[in-house]
């Protein structure tokens, strides 16, 4: 067995053990963990409320990520965030505008929206055409330009952009600023994340996307395993790096 495969199985086993033990521990604890504040998640409910009150669509962008490719798991995390955002407004007739750059993710996002409305017994408010596929070029600037135009034409309320973006995120952030709209940005790409930091008052930083459920459902003990797992794995990796550095000296 090669080293890479051995490390992969080691990581998988560790994550499995943490998930199982963490679940047991959280159930015994019976009260939620105290999570550090992430301003991007703090503001999400307010953005949804504002969209409902102003009767304007909230825009959730899932650009640059694809189901069935290397970014599948990021896409799943983004879909979870989409579900949680939409759950808050699914009892009304409001619908968000969701944009993707992947055809399969388009159907995934439609399913997430439908499920949120079905949960609230409000399926009549669900419209599949509120999820839109936009083409993406080499640097996704076509996507950025399209979102900028949509912001003006459809008079969107605010923008939540998660996924994999590059410099084109600056265009969207710029338009949002000019319209006095709030812009929450996140990207797994370093350039996009830097732009999101510069433009968004409340960014979500790369890996924080993976713990969205724990923040949007603070009372649900099951969802709190995510940040726990992430932190345990991170510390395990830090300790491993330090140990390797000491041993190799």
């Amino acid at each position: 067995m090669s080293n890479e495969v051995a490390y992969f199985w080691l990581l998988l086993t560790l994550a499995f053990v943490v998930s199982t033990l963490g679940g047991v521990m959280l159930r015994r604890r019976k009260r939620p963990l105290v999570l550090r504040t992430i301003r991007g998640y703090q503001i999400l409910p307010l953005l949804v409320d504002e969209a409902i009150e102003s009767d304007r669509q909230l825009h959730v962008g899932l650009g640059g990520i694809e189901l069935g490719k290397a970014t599948t798991l990021v896409s799943l995390a983004a879909l979870t965030l989409l579900y949680e955002v939409n759950r808050r407004q699914a009892f009304t007739s409001s619908t968000p505008l969701v944009t993707t750059t992947d055809g399969i993710l388009l159907t995934g996002a439609q399913d997430m929206l439908r499920r949120a409305y079905a949960t609230e017994n409000n399926l009549s408010a669900y419209h599949a055409d509120t999820v839109v596929w936009l083409p993406t070029g080499e640097r996704s600037l076509a996507y950025g330009a399209a979102i900028s135009a949509i912001n003006y034409i459809d008079r969107l309320s605010n923008n939540i952009m998660v996924g994999s973006y590059g410099a084109e995120l600056a265009l969207i952030g710029d338009v949002a600023t000019r319209r006095d709209a709030v812009f929450v940005g996140q990207s797994i790409d370093l350039v996009g994340q830097a732009v999101a930091f510069a433009h968004a008052e409340t960014p979500i930083l790369t890996e924080e996307l993976f713990v969205s459920e724990a923040y949007t459902r603070p009372d649900d003990l099951r969802s709190q395993i995510q940040p726990l797992m992430l932190d345990v794995l991170r510390w395990a990796l830090v300790i491993a790096i330090i140990l390797i550095a000491i041993v190799e000296r």
């Binding site: 992430l230 794995l233 990796l237």
Partner: peptide
């Protein structure tokens, strides 16, 4: 961070 996050989602 992204890799670890992907592992977490994958395990779940």
């Amino acid at each position: 961070g992204v890799g670890l996050g992907s592992v977490v989602v994958g395990i779940r």
